[in-house]
């Protein structure tokens, strides 16, 4: 009897999963293979692979794929480069626990501000007559304002502000869980500072790093609003999907969604494979 009650505890989660994940995903998958959908009565017509054929034979496809996953990966890299040293500093060089909590909660501030306001707030900073450009011009470093706002540079600056937290937190957690005596032991065992960092600190923080990469990767991949608004005509899968849904072309939009999810899963799988944590940690 106890066995069944154990399984009973899974039920709420299972119901949620079935209704809000599995069924919708199945519907999207199905629509992706259909000829047309009458949205009023919600009837799905036909069974075809034409949507996929159309996507993979389109001339701009490769470009879109590279843009989509390239920008997401670049965003991960930028967040990592900024986030890791910050998390490291916070863990090992800030002793005041209150200050740590304060700084970490400051990182959450962008999430407390509405998306549109947060985005518009960048105009006075990155715009042609914004702080950055004015400063650079008055210092004589540049003559004409840099195109910061409606460009990939602007996109990555805004993404960094928004998503660095997702990189920061897991890395900070992983770092702060490292037993200081492991670091001391490594020092006594003849490890100079840079090797203490790589062999002990970095390797033990890898689970956090990978977590951060996945968080930022998934978030930036799914974010089509920001690139749509700021990236100055950058074509991504997310933007295509929203465009086709907007034009009521559901089958093609669903096919694109499926492609994006599959590629994202494959990319994550490869990410976890390339960075085989165990291998990286055990044998160096």
């Amino acid at each position: 009897m106890a066995k069944y009650t154990n399984y009973l505890m899974l039920l709420p989660g299972l119901i949620l999963c079935v209704f809000f994940l599995i069924i919708p995903t199945a519907i999207i998958l199905r629509i992706g293979f259909s000829e047309s959908v009458s949205t009023a009565e919600f009837e799905i017509h036909g069974l075809t692979i034409e949507n996929y054929v159309k996507f993979f034979t389109a001339p701009q496809t490769l470009n879109i794929l590279v843009n989509t996953f390239g920008t997401a990966l670049l965003a991960c890299l930028i967040c990592f480069i900024v986030g890791y040293p910050f998390a490291y500093f916070l863990t090992f060089h800030v002793e005041n626990e209150k200050l740590k909590a304060y700084v970490l909660s400051l990182l959450m501030v962008p999430f407390l501000i509405d998306w549109s306001i947060r985005t518009i707030a960048w105009i006075p900073v990155l715009g042609d007559k914004g702080i950055v450009n004015s400063a650079l011009i008055s210092l004589g470093i540049i003559e004409n304002p840099l195109n910061l706002l409606f460009s990939r540079t602007g996109l990555h600056i805004i993404w960094l502000q928004t998503y660095v937290l997702f990189m920061e937190f897991p890395i900070y957690l992983a770092l702060s869980r490292i037993d200081p005596e492991l670091i001391q032991a490594a020092k006594v065992l003849k490890a100079p500072p840079h090797r203490v960092f790589y062999e002990i600190i970095f390797k033990l923080s890898l689970p956090g790093v990978i977590c951060g990469w996945i968080f930022v990767f998934v978030s930036t991949l799914g974010d089509y609003l920001t690139p749509g608004l700021w990236a100055g005509g950058l074509q991504t899968l997310g933007l295509s999907i929203s465009a086709y849904f907007g034009k009521n072309v559901w089958p093609y939009a669903c096919a694109l969604s499926t492609i994006m999810v599959v590629i994202a899963l494959v990319a994550l799988y490869i990410l976890l494979k390339i960075v085989d944590i165990k291998k990286l940690i055990y044998e160096s």
């Binding site: 037993d179 032991a185 490594a186 065992l189 033990l204």
Partner: peptide, 22 residues
């Protein structure tokens, strides 16, 4: 003189065996 340049070794009370290495 930093620890890695001292001609000694220390076994810590907690042993501090590296968990990520065999």
């Amino acid at each position: 003189v930093p620890p890695h340049k001292r001609d000694l070794s220390l076994m810590l009370e907690t042993y501090a065996v590296f968990p990520h290495m065999n």
